[in-house]
Design a protein around this nucleic acid. Sequence first.
DNA 1: AATGCGGGGGC
DNA 2: GCCCCAGCATT
Length: 346
Amino acid sequence: MQFSKTLINWYSINKRSLPWRETKDPYFIWLSEIILQQTQVKQGLPYYEAFLREFPSVFQLANANESDVLKLWQGLGYYSRARHLHATAKYVVNELNGEFPKSFKELIKLKGIGDYTASAIASICFNEPAAVVDGNVYRVLSRYFGIDTPINSTKGIKEFKLLAQELIDKKKPADFNQSIMEFGAIQCKPQNPDCSVCPLNISCVALKQNRIDQLPVKIKAVKAKKKYFNFLVFISEDGKTILEQRKTKGIWQNLYQFPLVETKSEMDFNTFKKHIDNHELLKNSSFDLSFYNETSIVHKLSHQHLYTKFWIINVKNLETKGVSINNIKDYAVPILIGNFIESFRF
DNA sequence: AATGCGGGGGC
DNA sequence: GCCCCAGCATT
């Protein structure tokens, strides 16, 4: 197939030099693939290097505490990846003697490994002809073949997977998979690709029909909801503050934060002072309230916009409820909290 | 089939 | 402001 040959040839010339491309060790490939889910190389690379420094093998990762793994993951987002990464490391060490499964069928059973990641590991590490379909593959195939089935519909997911599976070079599954993804990342970019230098421009359907900017088709995402977060930043005279671990499902599960009061709207000083008067951590004690930011900090997640205020609460002492302010950098926190901690002078 | 989950960057 | 990103789990 000319399509596959062209991609593999393009890849051999244009591929970026990246650390996980120097190995077929499933631990390294697995780690890189989990980190790179929904994450660009530029953002994930430093995390990959940090994880390998801290956990050179699956055994060190399995022996770590989840809190330490989350701390290292801090800032990368989609924290369930880190929790599943750790759980799978423990499973591989404890149940599989530290050896990763060697087939798509077995790999996909592991936590945090879905169709894409199982295909990536099986092809790159074990030469199994399992086609990867990530955001890049959707884009390349939808444009080159002029397919307008929505890529995030059930029909589209099946259709593109089938097509990729037909196109894969069964003799070079690793090269084919990586070539089509790299091609999507560098040549067939989301915005303003330079089709004049594309090795596939002669036969690209979208280019011929002048539909490059209309493909791939995607079903619209729901709009983000607004939420109003008020963090209680306690400061005691003996140098302590309060951090709590988020145990509920939802965003930032198992990360730490200052005690959170969610409200229906943005709080001004007087309203908020009344609002928290009966708060569990404040009743029967005197406190001095002030704000860190008078206008909300807007933190945008994919599905929520968080209008956030940090409230400074000076108290006499916090006894055992508090943690030493000197140690707060040891806790894994959302980037929203992390940015505050960095800029606030305790 | 639909929803939730982060954060950074491009335009 | 909207879209995109080496997706997965849950319901």
